[in-house]
Each structure stands twice: as structure tokens, then as C-alpha cells.
């Protein structure tokens, strides 16, 4: 187990390092003069030199990269080009908002998607199964940002039931929760479909196993067989799916945050991209990548841990 965990973590770190390096080189190789691009045509040479120095772009690339990595290890992600604030401070301010949104989205998707998948299996090849199947595919197909715009239009602008923008009043849990409903719905909807399908497919596989036949041969009801005997095993592959899907959740959050004007890492990155604020973009992409890679690594370890068979093999 330890050996496996070590290997998995090392691979995660390798992927992170590689991604960082490619991004760093890419930013370095920007066609033209990055300072000129960022500042526009009317910038004076002094302004450019100042900006370059602030971005640390006036030194050879390998020095830049190594100091960049060393700084990251110290938790230093550089300075915001425009406001001169620490990027790490800005990110740690906005990150919680995004996390709450992401977990709320995945949470309601799990709460609905897993039972839907189970009912699909209980009533397999029937009308119910078919309807759940078509709904799932449709939920997956419709882009989450379109869902976001439409629910904004219907529930916030037309019906005025829920707030259209922001993350709610600070300190007021109820208003924060109300502000969370629409974006979390938009992001989670596709996941309801994904989870229903995944649980269905994975569970049908499990339902073919011998121990399910034993449970049935002892007269347990199909509902009980599905929820008690098949579900736990079927969820093992779903764990890794959720982790891999975190990438999609983050992408969804970017759109939802922009559309609902919610403070968060997505909104931050978007504004940094449009204002060519490289350190912020770098920092935000890096933090989300670290977050994402560590979630997938944790999911793999968790998956190995939940399955007692795998757990024993790995011991």
C-alpha cells in the first residue's frame, strides 16, 4: 500500500512539475514583447522596464524558472502586475468561494445521480430506465454555461426568486446559500447525468457477479440487492470518475462565477486573462492544477483503500 501510494504521489508531482515548466516556457516565449503587449502601444520604455522587472522577465529563463519554483515552495506566487498585491493572498481569499461552489455542485449531483442510476438498474430495460437514460444523456450534452444563463434568466431576472449576482452577504449563511443555488444547479446538472449513467453501467457489471445471485437466491428484494449489495461495489470506480470530473467542475465554476458575478478563482483567472495579468493567471492555473492533481491522487488511494480485496493485495 505504502509503495503504491508513494508511486502514485510521485507521478502526481511529476505531472505538476511538467505542467508548470511547459506553462512557464510558454509564457516566456510569448511572441513579441510581453510588456508591450500588456501595456499597450502607448507605454514608455521606463514603464516597460519596470513591468519586466516586476514580472522578473529581465533574467535568463533557467534562473527565472528555478527561482519561480523556489518561490512557489515558499508559498510565494509573485505579485499582481496591476495592484501589486501578493498573488497567493488574492488566491487564498477567493479559493474558498470556488470550493464551496464546487462541493455544493458535486454534492447535489451525487444525491440525485446515484439513486437515479440505481433505479435504472432496478427497472432495467423498462420505460423508467429509458427515460432516465435519455434525461442523463441530455443533462450531459447541454453545456453548463448555457444552463447557467437560462436559470439566471428564468429564476433571477424573470421570476426574481433568487439573487442574480454575487455570493451573498458576508456572514449571512442564508443569503450565501440562496446565492449558491443557481450556480450549483447549473454546474451539477450534467453531473447528475454522468453519475446516473456511470452508476448504472458499473452496477450492471456488479449485478452479473455470483454473490448477487446468492443474495437473490436468499430471497432479498431487488431494491435491497441493489442498494445494499451492489451499490457499495459499484461506487468504487465512480470515486475515480468524480475525481477526474473535478476538472469539469472547475471549468463549470469558471463560467458560473463569471455569469453570476461570484468572487472566485474562475472569475479571478478570467479577469487576469483579459487584463494580461500573467502572475495571477500562472498562480491560479497552478493552484487549480495542484488541487485537481491531488484530488485524483487521493481518489486513487481511496479507491485502493475502500476495496478490501485491493487493500489486501497492496498491503
Amino acid at each position: 500500500m505504502l509503495n503504491y501510494a508513494f508511486k502514485r504521489v510521485m507521478l502526481g508531482i511529476l505531472i505538476l512539475l511538467f505542467t508548470m515548466m511547459v506553462m512557464y516556457v510558454a509564457v516566456y516565449l510569448i511572441p513579441g514583447d510581453p510588456a508591450a503587449v500588456a501595456l499597450g502601444p502607448r507605454a514608455t520604455p521606463e514603464m516597460k522596464a519596470d513591468l519586466l522587472a516586476r514580472m522578473g522577465l529581465d533574467q535568463p529563463i533557467y534562473i527565472q524558472f528555478s527561482s519561480f519554483i523556489v518561490n512557489i515552495l515558499h508559498g510565494d506566487l509573485g505579485l499582481d502586475v496591476w495592484s501589486n498585491r501578493e498573488v497567493s493572498a488574492i488566491i487564498s481569499e477567493t479559493m474558498p468561494n470556488t470550493m464551496i461552489l464546487a462541493f455544493a455542485s458535486i454534492g447535489w449531483a451525487l444525491a440525485l445521480g446515484i439513486p437515479l442510476g440505481c433505479f435504472s438498474v432496478i427497472y432495467r430495460n423498462s420505460f423508467v430506465d429509458r427515460i432516465i437514460g435519455i434525461l442523463s444523456v441530455s443533462f450531459i450534452a447541454i453545456p453548463s454555461f448555457v444552463v447557467a444563463i437560462f436559470v439566471l434568466l428564468i429564476f433571477a431576472v424573470q421570476l426574481r426568486w433568487l439573487p442574480a449576482i454575487g455570493a451573498g452577504e458576508e456572514g449571512d449563511i442564508l443569503s450565501q446559500a440562496r446565492a449558491l443555488i443557481l450556480p450549483a444547479f447549473a454546474i451539477g446538472l450534467g453531473w447528475v447525468g454522468y453519475l446516473a449513467r456511470m452508476v448504472r453501467a458499473s452496477m450492471l457489471e456488479v449485478m452479473g457477479e455470483q454473490h448477487i445471485r446468492t443474495a437473490r437466491a436468499f430471497g432479498l428484494s431487488e431494491t435491497r440487492v441493489v442498494f445494499r449489495y451492489a451499490l457499495a461495489i459499484s461506487l468504487i470506480p465512480v470515486i475515480s470518475l468524480i475525481a477526474v470530473g473535478m476538472g469539469g467542475i472547475i471549468s463549470g465554476s469558471v463560467f458560473a462565477e463569471i455569469i453570476f458575478a461570484r468572487p472566485g478563482i474562475g472569475n479571478l483567472t478570467y479577469n487576469a486573462v483579459t487584463s494580461r495579468n500573467y502572475p495571477v493567471v500562472m498562480g491560479a492555473v497552478m493552484v487549480t492544477t495542484v488541487f485537481y492533481v491531488s484530488i485524483t491522487v487521493m481518489a486513487d488511494l481511496l479507491m485502493a483503500y475502500t476495496d478490501p480485496r485491493v487493500r489486501d493485495v497492496l498491503k
Binding site: 455470483q210 454473490h211 446468492t214 443474495a215 437473490r216 437466491a217 461495489i233
Partner: peptide, 25 residues
């Protein structure tokens, strides 16, 4: 009626002991 039959009127012992039981319970 089938559910009463199975495991009450008729009990079964299956062939492969390695896979008869649920591995996670």
C-alpha cells in the same frame, strides 16, 4: 411468492465458494 420461495422454501448452495459472498460486507 418467488421471494418467499427463495431462501425460505428452497435454499441454495452455489458452486464457486470464492465468489459466493459479497466481498465488501
Amino acid at each position: 411468492r418467488l421471494r418467499k420461495l427463495r431462501g425460505y422454501d428452497i435454499a441454495t448452495v452455489f458452486q464457486d465458494p470464492m465468489t459466493t459472498f459479497n466481498p465488501v460486507m
